[in-house]
């Protein structure tokens, strides 16, 4: 473990198996006034966790790593009752994993590569969120339910497919319409749901218990 800087914004435990990613993200978070502790694997984090002060900290973990994976780590922390907000980092196509992480109570997920704003917004959420943040904690608000009910059957089908990680092309094939049509449904659905990003949409879907 390497400790870089201690400022007021809180602590971040960063776990990624790629050295360049670790260095880059740590530099970014440090510049954004977070204290960063770096781990190269889930195993390393678990072995040092006993000596860490996890109050006021957040975990930023890659979902796809050799050895113990981001999701497994999150599930283990849940089982052990470790109260630590989790943000998962995903690469392309890990949408189903991201959804699972969200369902397991992750605060957010970030698609690599991310911008300063995206990562700081997520971390602010993580640090601000009232604890405990465990499985199923986020309940759908009445407004969210209302938005969801306003979707046409096609739009809700598209929503379900999108959060399952299907591409427009795949959804088009399975519903037997053109990808262009799906694109339109998707935009309408996003605006009816009032979701400004894909991550937000996934968060809503998890709260609504949509998808698998």
């Amino acid at each position: 473990m390497t400790k870089l800087q201690k400022v007021n914004k809180g602590e971040v435990f960063l776990i990624d198996d790629d050295a360049a990613v670790r260095r880059g993200v740590a530099a970014l978070l440090t510049a954004a006034d977070y204290t960063v502790s770096i781990f190269t694997s889930g195993e390393e984090f678990l072995s040092e966790m006993g000596s860490l002060d996890i109050d006021d900290a957040a975990l930023l973990v890659d979902v796809c790593m050799p050895g113990i994976q981001g999701l497994e780590l999150q599930e283990k922390l849940n089982r052990d009752g470790v109260d630590l907000p989790v943000i998962v980092m995903t690469a392309h196509g890990d949408i189903p994993m991201a959804v699972r992480a969200m369902r397991n109570g992750a605060v957010d997920f970030l698609e690599k590569p991310f911008t300063v704003d995206e990562v700081t917004t997520s971390l602010e959420r993580a640090h601000a969120i009232s604890r405990p943040v465990i499985k199923g904690a986020q309940k759908a608000s009445p407004e969210l339910c209302k938005n969801y009910d306003s979707l046409t059957p096609r739009e809700s089908e598209v929503l379900r497919n999108v959060v399952d990680g299907s591409t427009n092309k795949e959804i088009a094939r399975s519903l037997d319409v053109s990808p262009r049509t799906i694109e339109v449904h998707r935009q309408n659905m996003m605006s009816k749901m009032n979701a400004k990003s894909f991550a937000e949409l996934v968060r809503m879907a998890v709260a609504l218990d949509i998808g698998d």
Partner: peptide, 14 residues
């Protein structure tokens, strides 16, 4: 995607 992530993060840091 990994090096791209590192590059974007470093640029963000700067």
């Amino acid at each position: 995607n990994q090096p791209l992530t590192a590059a974007a993060s470093l640029a963000g840091a700067v």
